[in-house]
Design a protein around this nucleic acid. Structure first.
Lengths: 330, 330
DNA sequence: TTGTATGCGTTATCAT
DNA sequence: ATGATAACGCATACAA
């Protein structure tokens, strides 16, 4: 009666094959076994449709071949792409990935870390916002876009260089008076360096610039008022805008259209992230491209490769500029 | 030496609290225990920072509180949103979600099912394409957008009604001669009903229509040739286009722009899915909206609620029309 | 080389 | 109400 519902175990296989339990285990794990035995065991496995129980394996090995990904959601394109590439990189190493959408909730972030410990996962990759996040020392953690502590490696793109690059591009393309737009996250994280890099680049190239930083809770529409207030005689006083993300650039482009400003003739726009919808080869806008597949691979490597554990605590991967129709063609 | 690295176990807690193992277990699981014992155990748990080992739990209960999501990727917006909402729905039920990006690969889809069995997951939610997918009877499976067999419940939006709705909308908005565009997936799945629904709607409303179905491997650009060939004296012979997905609509809109056709004045476009980028409230285009959160919830409910197991094998959730700037305002 | 016995951490049964 | 013990399925050290 019982066996009807429960799956076959190694014991069942052993009985079926007429060998001992240990022999089956060896066959399953590819350890040397006499050929005649191996064949009988393999036949029994086929016949019973046996599958190892990874919970028993995990219990014994106290290793689960599983990692947790902490990420706000998979709806915003940058997160979605990151989740995809991390998932692939982990699967390639035969690791499974537990997805935990945190929705920017600090409590959720902390709870999922507790959950991860209970699940005895081998590591956590987290793009988190909780400023007080407690990370247990005995579970490997790789942070994305935010430095958490010296014992937690952080991976991000080179945000500062990205900001510089945006300024240089705008300068190269003839801009004289530019703006930096960003929605402010109160927490200190790596993407914040985009502003500093941009300012640095503007200064180096003698570009006039103005920055506008909105609060987290202010609506995107507030940017519209800002832009509107800089229109004199129907003409925007900026000839270039650097938006902290492609998402913001998407909004800004819509607003500029509404304000009858031509892009890129009147004003050029550069975003950040390198988003393209529907896996299109076209970008949403001209943009500073994050190397998302490389970031993903680096996170996984850092997490799983013991020898990398002691390495530098912040790894910045190079960014590139991509033309996306909202700047003049170089 | 050993205890330095391994986490504390119930035994350690019992020793620390000076009680028996079983007592600790009861406290952890909220079973009745004498108050004085409970307090001592709770203190010990705090002190040792004890966490239950879910692998041992899983081994004993042969239940993992984990489900697998099989999905092509999390980069395409529809999949991304589905993954997010399913993740939330599962987490709300205290279930964990193993994400498996299949990349449309039939072998991968099958392998992940095997993996799922080894992991003794409690169920699988799958949006799959493998026509020969073998689904083991003894693991609950819920399919999205494709009917696999009578023992596998399928959840999708009402694709046929969506097609009808698109035709009706175009008719209401004054179209006389419309087109249906789709990239053909060779497999038979629910979204294919959009075409039939659309044709049905066109016939009911006396709308002239033409359909163009590209092969899976043909490039999107082939649509451009199709459209171009229907331009006479600079004017497109269609005044309405129904695209099988918002992704296709996105491309078509770009092409129409290139062909100097004004949207929605010259030609109106309706897509399908209800995608909005960057969690924007704006849609990519006027579209038939799939109730993604409801689909997600229904999948989870079907998977976890035993009483629903025997229910109907195809559940169609209602769609709605949303204005997205590519049709005339009703 | 093959077989046996033990323990991983938890829960549930059964005496106490 | 509490405490000892067996069992879940697997891997391995050790004995044959």
């Amino acid at each position: 009666m019982k066996k009807e519902i429960s799956n076959p175990t190694m014991k069942d296989v052993a009985k079926e094959a007429g060998v001992a339990l240990g022999t089956v285990s060896k066959v399953v794990n590819g350890l040397p076994v006499g050929d005649s035995y191996r064949i009988r065991v393999e036949e029994a496995i086929q016949k019973l449709n046996y599958q190892v129980n990874s919970y028993a394996q995990g219990l014994r090995a106290s290793k689960s071949h599983t990692a947790v990904l902490l990420i706000p959601n998979t709806e915003e394109p940058f997160y979605a792409s990151l989740a995809y590439h991390i998932n692939l990189a982990l699967l390639k190493q035969n690791y499974h990935m537990l997805l935990c959408s945190t929705d920017y909730d600090s409590n959720a972030e902390q709870e999922y870390i507790t959950m991860a410990r209970q699940h005895k996962v081998d590591g956590i990759i987290g793009l988190t916002y909780n400023p007080d996040l407690v990370i247990h020392e005995n579970i490997p953690f790789v942070s994305i876009d935010r430095c958490i502590g010296s014992h937690v490696p952080c991976v991000s793109c080179d945000n500062f260089a990205g900001g510089q690059l945006a300024a240089e591009k705008l300068a190269d393309l003839g801009c004289k008076n530019v703006a930096f737009l960003r929605k402010g996250s109160s927490i200190s994280n790596e993407p914040n360096k985009r502003k500093a890099g941009f300012e640095n680049g503007c200064l180096a190239r003698g570009l006039q610039y103005e920055t506008k930083i909105m609060g987290d809770d202010e609506p995107y529409e507030a940017f519209e008022q800002f832009l509107e207030s800089h229109i004199v005689d129907g003409r925007l006083s900026f000839d270039g805008i650097f938006c902290v993300t492609d998402g913001l650039a998407y909004f800004v482009l819509k607003m500029l259209r509404k304000l009858n400003q031509r892009v890129p003739e009147d004003v050029q726009v550069i975003g950040f992230d390198g988003i393209h919808f529907f896996r299109d080869i076209d970008y949403v806008c001209s943009t500073i491209v994050q190397p998302i597949p490389d970031i993903a691979k680096m996170c996984v490597r850092l997490l799983l490769d013991e020898t990398m554990q002691e390495k530098s605590s912040l790894i910045c991967l190079p960014v590139t500029y991509a033309y996306g129709g909202t700047t003049l063609k170089g």
